[in-house]
Computed example of a mutant assay.
Amino acid sequence: MKLVTRAQWGAKPSKYSLAYIASTQGVKIHYEGSYVAKSLGDSGAHGSCAGHMRDIQASHLANTKEDYSDIAYNAVVCPHGFVFEGRGLHRKTGANGNQTLNVKDYAVCAMVGNSGLVQPTEAQLDGLVDAVQWLRNGGAAGNEVLGHRDGYATQCPGDPLYAWVKAGAHRPDGTGPQGGTGGEASGGTALARYQVTINGLVYGYRASGAHVTAVGKALVARGFGRHYSVGPGPEWSDADTENFSDFQVSLGYKGTAPHQDADGVPGPVSLQQLLGTLPGKPATSSVPPFPGRSAFVLGKSNPAVTVLDGGLVRRGFTKHHAGAAYTPGPLFSQNTLLNVRDFQRATPALAGDADGYPGPLTWRLLLS
């Protein structure tokens, strides 16, 4: 699961205290119900999703009729499969239509609309299942998965997404969400069933490969193998999670619930402490050196502007243009400046100084 926390996407604080909810009957699936730009679904446009999330929250906080406490949804899933934390676990939603329905189910929204981007991507369907599983494992959601229109008079979540819900809300490979009433470990504590990628290798529930076997063998060698019934193997099982959780606890990590520090899914630090090294190949940067601020003078041309434009196009920040579409070129125009400013505003590390002129950090984040 690729979780983006509230801090990571730049959420504003809740207007009022959010109501605690111990458990729900299940999860309702939603869509935005308005225009969503098709460009948000482009493969290189994930950099726009945090800003889109902030826009959704801002629109909800500004809704005087509903007087929302916060963004209405418990989670929102972008077209690239990332799960953005909304109200989060054990928080009553504000999206299902009335107080009774809000208590009954959590709410998960997909970043698709009623025009523009209307068809959920395969990565998004994967992320929706991740979100459901997250709410089951960490928020005590029941097994029910329904559309918003099931129980409330609305077109939400749109016909394409509702057809997916009615077909069983499966991943593109045909598997469904784990967890819920059937996904608990012995003793009644929900197990973490999500994945992480470290140096290009996947760890966590259903990850597979020789690197998974190596982790299991290292756990046994360190005395953390009590949950295995037949010994470690190449597919990550619940036993691997439980054993790795025991190891994390031995290191002093706290919290064994999903997405807490000792939930049994490796992080780089705990994995290196177990193995003595981090297998795999570290990611390398292909970002060209920053050409200097003098390359970006309004109304002047420089080859670096063409490179900059390529990053804007890949990430979907092309709203401002003179012709039919934004076209990369060497001229640092007013439209270039406005598109760079949009990217800066959508990026928490840059939002405090969004003047449209690239500096070294803007250059690196846009092109990485």
Rank of each mutant, 00 (worst) to 15 (best):
Q8N: 12
A11Y: 08
A19I: 14
A22T: 14
G26Y: 07
S34M: 03
A37S: 14
S39F: 11
G44I: 08
S48T: 14
S59K: 15
A62I: 07
V76E: 05
V77Q: 10
T93N: 01
G94N: 04
V103Q: 11
A110H: 01
L117N: 01
V118L: 00
P120C: 00
L125K: 12
Q133E: 15
N143L: 02
V145M: 03
R149Y: 13
G151V: 07
T154Q: 06
G174Y: 08
G176T: 05
A190P: 15
I198F: 06
N199L: 00
G200C: 06
A207K: 01
G216R: 06
A218H: 13
L219K: 09
R226D: 13
W236P: 07
S237K: 02
D238N: 15
F244A: 02
D246E: 09
Y253R: 06
T256S: 12
A262N: 06
G264Q: 10
S270G: 05
Q273S: 12
L275V: 09
G276W: 12
G280V: 11
P282S: 08
S294R: 12
A295L: 05
N302Q: 11
P303T: 06
D309R: 07
A322R: 09
Y326C: 06
L331F: 13
L338K: 04
R345C: 00
D353R: 14
L361K: 09
L361F: 08
L365P: 08
S368V: 06
